[in-house]
Design a protein around this nucleic acid. Sequence first.
DNA 1: ATGCATAAGGTCAGAAAAGGTCAAATATCA
DNA 2: TGATATTTGACCTTTTCTGACCTTATGCAT
Lengths: 149, 149
Amino acid sequence: MKISELISQHILSLLDEADGIAEIQRNDLAVSMGCVPSQINYVLTSRFTPERGFIVESRRGGGGYIRITRIQMNRAEALAHAIRSIGDAVSPASAQGFLTLMMQEGMLDREQAALIAAACSDRAYKNVPQHERDILRASILKNTLLVLL
Amino acid sequence: MKISELISQHILSLLDEADGIAEIQRNDLAVSMGCVPSQINYVLTSRFTPERGFIVESRRGGGGYIRITRIQMNRAEALAHAIRSIGDAVSPASAQGFLTLMMQEGMLDREQAALIAAACSDRAYKNVPQHERDILRASILKNTLLVLL
DNA sequence: ATGCATAAGGTCAGAAAAGGTCAAATATCA
DNA sequence: TGATATTTGACCTTTTCTGACCTTATGCAT
């Protein structure tokens, strides 16, 4: 089996394990794969390209790393599915969890998630009766997400 | 974790605790972080730069110190001002006009404005009584804008 | 006032720790 | 066999960490 293939498999499985985000140390991986470090770059540039749905970021220097992110190709579809899955009432915690998940899945970026979270927060619902807040939250959650469709 | 990162985090949390002004003793911090003093300077010059919105002042000699100040960026200042200007109740039209204005002033981008507009729309407030909607809207408007600060 | 001792903080160069590039050598495949 | 893909290694760049040496301020003794 080609080493490139092994490296690629390995990264792919890391991505599967960790919600589409894998972080590696180039040298460590090279050692564990029994290849020279630059081979990692070869695999990344030949297979983990944006056209194939990946983003590769890195930092040099002490504590450096290479981060590979799988980008959600059918964002709109995933988003629509997510919206449909929202019930008629949503607790604060579940809204937060929902947004975090969507962020991890690449449907939202951090700021979008933070904005929506603020709009879903009980802090904003001071004068709304307790028993109606979860219903309002669900409604706002759906409405804001629809904008991103 | 990189020591630089730890130091940076620490200073940032000091800034958060104390209204954007942190005062440290270089040697003490170095000891508590387990690094040499000059590493503190490294972190300050590499991360707490004016471009990133910080001012660093210091004094040598007995009773010396290093003071890091987070400077109010223009956008944040404008944003804060805008938020303060929001009353306790906001009509749908005025929320929309407000967001459009903020967008024109460069405080928001189009998508942020659209997201917040959705969270402020009556469409999301179906089961909230008419007379309470403007109050809820004002609250949500403020809460979401605060995220961008 | 003067001159040291002490207590800070500042600078800079070099080592160390990552990751990046590129071209030559090899292997694979159509 | 010719084109394309893989492998390797020499050399480069960026970021972090360390230590030796420098400058400035304060306080105290004379």
